[in-house]
Design a protein around this nucleic acid. Structure first.
Length: 511
RNA sequence: GCCGCGUUGGUCAAGGGGUUAAGACGCAUCCCUUUCACGGAUGAAUCACGGGUUCGAUUCCCGUACGCGGUACCA
């Protein structure tokens, strides 16, 4: 009997959720869902000094936008509540003390100044960052170096302390990563990490294993940056709950900046003008806003799709996947080991694909919002939908529905005269006069008929129709862009088309 | 420095002892269209390096280089 799969995403609410974070959520979610398991959102807010107002709400909204709803969360509750670590504070101390009793951890009374002294005095060329470990711990002020009596004294005097894990010497630990296979560590090289901080809050290391155990997490997935501290977690599992009960691990590769090397960061967003957050994030203190994919005009389907295949593929040539399809086809084993550079151009391509794929219904709501923001009045829903169907193929980002389609809602006020004037003549003036006059006789107003009449008239007047198409386009659109010109006229309607032709004709006299 | 993880075109990547080393994005050229896109076609461009193992390594092993991550009372 297999245990029910339970995974968690455990962010620290300190700001916007960037690409890597959302991808971690996504992979967790996909894995859980394809195994009929639970996806838990746990808020790791153990560092009170890093509290950022609104960051937690931002996470909910992001998950909601992406369609990755947790089964249990601080907001939703669940059988293992609370899901906010700050509210679980009292739980952790007990485990830390058990560790001390069992000889796996100890009290440390060093002040931050003392730690600083140790780090500078032990610093050498070959060891630029000395650690609090088996080599140095006996020189520090802790229950190992000062004995139980001294410890008692300090404890009763209410001396601030932390609890540190006592890393064993020269033991080889290993971990079977679902992506990387067996990874080994020598415990001598790992420092005595703080487990419980002076304020009584646990560090990530303690909290993550205690909560993963208590919340019955079966698979623990996180970013690669956690791999180096994994031996601490393995040891904690061994000491507290039994290594055999430890969840299966997988460490995801990082998402790198598009140019150069290194982790994608907020700086890159500003520097390159590309979004890195799912949604715009405004820092409550500085007021500074970093734009997000949603605001740039991405469809959540495209965003999720793009993220899924950034570091994963199913071995076929398929690149476009819906969430449902991903649930079916995703597999941790096929996640790449190496980090991937983020490519914004490709991201836009995914969005373009999804703009064509998604229903007009869904698009119309989104596009309506964009037009509203631009103060464009939309006569009616069916007109909007027709415009959308006509221009969706040429849009990569949602805002392009405005730049590509605004002329459907208001007549051009200026024209690309440079494309017109040089080749203009009286024959063309009279052609357009007769063309717009002929509108009255077109009973079935559609692109095909419009084109037919256009061509017949042109031929009868001895002008090549091709030479007249561009002028017509400029009259209707104002510039050299847009869908097939008779489609435009057809949608615009008889009156409006006539009006726009006459608008320009009024000016040709001055040329 | 030390530890860990990586390394297939510019980018994302498939492949995994014998292949013309897929495909996508981007780029270039052409076609379509007397608009701009879309679409189609074609093209340039890749197995980090050095040793092994092998009849044969991009693929397996060992080094080296490079990159990234970690080295906090941050997660």
């Amino acid at each position: 009997m297999e245990k029910k799969v339970r995974v968690r995403f455990a962010p620290s609410p300190t700001g916007g959720l960037h690409l890597g974070g959302v991808r971690t959520v996504l992979y967790n979610y996909l894995f859980a869902k394809q195994h009929q398991g639970d996806f838990i959102l746990r808020i790791e807010d153990t560092d009170q000094s890093r509290f950022v107002a609104g960051a937690e709400e931002y996470i909910y909204e992001t998950l909601n936008w992406c369609g990755l709803e947790p089964d249990e969360s601080p907001l939703k509750g669940g059988p293992f509540a609370p899901y906010r670590q700050s509210e679980r504070k009292k739980i952790y101390r007990e485990y830390a003390e058990t560790l001390i009793t069992d000889g796996y951890a100890y009290y440390a009374f060093d002040t931050s100044e003392e730690l600083e002294v140790m780090r500078t005095s032990h610093r050498t060329e070959t060891n630029p960052s000395p650690q609090y470990d088996h080599q140095t711990r006996m020189y520090m002020r802790n229950s190992l170096s000062i004995g139980s009596e001294g410890t008692e004294k300090l404890l009763t005097a209410k001396t601030p302390y932390v609890i540190r894990i006592k890393m064993p010497e020269n033991e080889v630990l290993h971990l079977n990563d679902m992506i990387r296979g067996r990874v080994e560590f020598n415990t001598s090289l790992v420092d005595d990490k703080v487990l419980l901080k002076a304020d009584g809050m646990p560090t990530y290391h303690l909290a993550v294993v205690v909560d993963d155990f208590l919340m019955q997490i079966t698979h623990a997935f996180r970013g690669e940056e956690w791999l180096p501290s994994a031996p601490v977690h393995v040891l904690l599992w061994r000491y507290l709950f039994g290594e055999e009960n430890m969840p299966a691990w997988a460490h995801f590769p990082l998402i790198l900046k598009p140019d150069g090397n290194g982790k994608l960061s907020k700086r890159d967003s500003e520097r390159l003008g590309i979004p890195i957050f799912a949604m715009a994030w405004t820092d409550p203190v500085s007021g500074e806003t970093i734009s997000g994919f949603r605001e740039k005009g991405f469809l959540s389907e495209a965003f999720v799709n793009m993220l899924a295949v950034l570091g994963w593929n199913d071995g076929t040539e398929q690149e476009i996947y819906s969430l449902e399809e991903l649930k079916e086809k995703f597999s941790i084993e096929r996640v790449h080991k190496a980090g991937a550079k983020f490519n914004y151009e490709k991201a836009k391509w995914f969005n373009q694909e999804w703009i064509r794929k998604v229903s007009v219904d869904e698009l119309s709501g989104l596009v309506r919002k964009i037009y509203n923001d631009q103060q464009v009045r939309i006569p009616d829903e069916s007109y909007l939908r027709s415009v959308i169907m006509l221009i969706r193929d040429r849009c990569h980002l949602l805002p392009e529905f405005y730049t590509q389609g605004r002329f459907f809602f208001s007549a051009p006020k200026q024209w690309d005269l440079g494309a017109l004037k040089p080749k203009w003549n009286v024959a063309k003036t009279s052609f357009f006069k007769s063309y717009s006059n002929a509108f009255g006789s077109i009973s079935d107003w559609n692109a095909l008929n419009l084109e037919m009449v256009f061509k017949e008239l042109a031929n009868s007047q001895g002008i090549k129709p091709g030479e007249l198409q561009l002028p017509l386009r400029i009259m209707l659109v104002g510039e050299k862009m847009g869908p097939p010109v008779f489609e435009i006229a057809s949608l615009l309607g008889k009156e409006e088309s006539k009006k726009r032709i006459n608008n320009l004709l009024d000016q040709t006299g001055d040329w």
